[in-house]
Structure formats: structure tokens, C-alpha cells
Computed example of a mutant assay.
Amino acid sequence: MEEEKDPFALITMTIPKRAPVFPGSVGTFRYRLVRDGKAGEGTVQASVYENICFEKAKHIETESFPWTEEGMAQIRAWLNQKLQERGTQPFSILGGRD
């Protein structure tokens, strides 16, 4: 059996540098990263929410992590845990209808 890849492997120190807010998804699992401060000194707030835009989401879970290599590893682990808890469906514009 082929080993599963980490869907959050792209989350590294450089992601928060690209934009102050970085949204992402794995199928219908939505997440959002928001930086505060500078790399090595600041924090990155990670949020997960239902399959809707963040501004309209009602079930948001948020955690803050240091903006360090260790903090990025913690974010990846936290997102993987939340993905296991919340699950995902393949993304479909039609909402699963044929």
C-alpha cells in the first residue's frame, strides 16, 4: 500500500510571508492561517471551519502557534488532527449531485 502524503506539507515558514491571510482546503475541509508579527518572533493563528466562506462560518476552531519551524510543524499536526475529526468530502460545485 502506498504511504499517504501529508496534505499540509506545503505549510512551511514561507507560507505566512506570502500573504497576511492564507486560506486553504482539502476537499470540503477548510482552513485559514493569519500571521501576526515577524518570522521567528510572531505568531500564526490557524482556524478550521465548515465548507463555507470564513466570514459566514459559525463553527470555527482557532489555535495560535509560534511563527517558527517548530510552530509550523505544530500547525501541520493540528490541521491533520482536525481533518481526522471533521473529515472531508471531495469538492464538488454541485454539492455532490449528479
Rank of each mutant, 00 (worst) to 15 (best):
R18S: 15
R18H: 13
P20W: 08
V21D: 11
V21A: 10
F22I: 13
F22E: 10
F22T: 10
P23A: 05
G24Y: 00
G24I: 02
V26C: 03
V26R: 03
G27Q: 03
G27R: 01
T28F: 02
T28N: 02
T28S: 07
T28Y: 03
T28V: 04
F29E: 00
R30A: 05
Y31K: 02
Y31Q: 00
R32T: 01
R32E: 04
L33K: 00
L33A: 03
V34T: 09
R35M: 06
D36L: 08
D36A: 11
G37I: 08
G37E: 10
K38E: 15
K38P: 07
A39R: 11
A39N: 08
A39L: 10
T43A: 04
V44R: 00
Q45P: 01
A46R: 00
A46D: 03
S47D: 07
S47L: 04
S47R: 06
Y49P: 00
Y49V: 04
Y49Q: 03
Y49K: 04
E50R: 07
E50W: 05
E50V: 06
E50P: 09
E50L: 09
I52H: 12
I52T: 15
C53A: 14
C53S: 15
F54Y: 12
F54A: 00
E55P: 02
K56Y: 14
K56W: 13
A57Y: 03
A57S: 11
A57V: 10
A57M: 07
A57I: 09
A57Q: 05
K58R: 13
K58C: 09
K58Y: 08
K58M: 10
K58Q: 14
H59A: 15
E61H: 14
E61N: 12
T62L: 05
T62P: 00
T62Y: 09
E63C: 12
E63A: 12
S64E: 12
